[in-house]
């Protein structure tokens, strides 16, 4: 038997939104010169805002948040729990740099990793928002040496191996 631990946050769960988005997208490139991952996480602002407010990570809408290091790292720390790269099973540390809001309702969060050499055993876990929205689907386009590869993540398939070219 496994013991069930849970975090205490309150989710006001509404079952039927007539118009839901439930889609996150990441665009990440391996910067060979700096040996760092650099990228952008893109969410429907409304979906993410609602999730983070409910989790108590932010207390107001993104529009009212200061772009200061405190709120940016708070958002980052939460998001990088569910958006994690692994090289040889070891998680790669990511840090959020800033975010911006687009007029058509998206939020883009920019981040960088620590220095890392990509191993052939390179994986991504991308289950952002899947705990709150079971129908959430996430996608990444990974760019390395100008080559692009796209992967899809679902609730039952939220960690995948990412092919690395030599």
């Amino acid at each position: 038997m496994k013991l069930l631990f849970f975090v205490l946050f309150f989710v006001c769960y509404s079952k039927t939104f007539a118009h839901s988005y439930f889609f996150a997208f990441a665009e990440v490139e391996y910067n060979v010169m700096q040996e760092k991952l650099e990228g952008t996480l893109i969410f429907t602002r409304h979906d993410l805002e609602e999730a983070l407010i409910k989790k108590g990570i932010i207390s107001s809408t993104f529009e009212k948040l200061q772009h200061d290091s405190l709120s940016i790292s708070a958002i980052g720390n939460t998001l990088f729990n569910d958006f994690k790269f692994f090289s040889n099973q070891i998680p790669i540390k990511l840090s959020a740099l800033d975010f911006s809001l687009t007029k058509n309702g998206l939020i883009e969060i920019y981040f960088k990793s620590e220095k890392v050499k990509l191993s052939q055993n390179f994986e991504l876990q991308f289950n952002s928002l899947m705990d709150i929205y079971p129908k959430q689907q996430n996608k990444i386009t990974f760019i390395q040496n100008s080559e692009k590869r796209t992967y899809v993540f679902m609730n039952n398939e939220s960690r995948r191996k990412i092919t690395i070219s030599n």
Partner: peptide, 10 residues
């Protein structure tokens, strides 16, 4: 999945 029950509100 069991992970769906992470919070008391779940």
């Amino acid at each position: 999945k069991m992970e769906d029950f992470r919070s008391i509100s779940d």
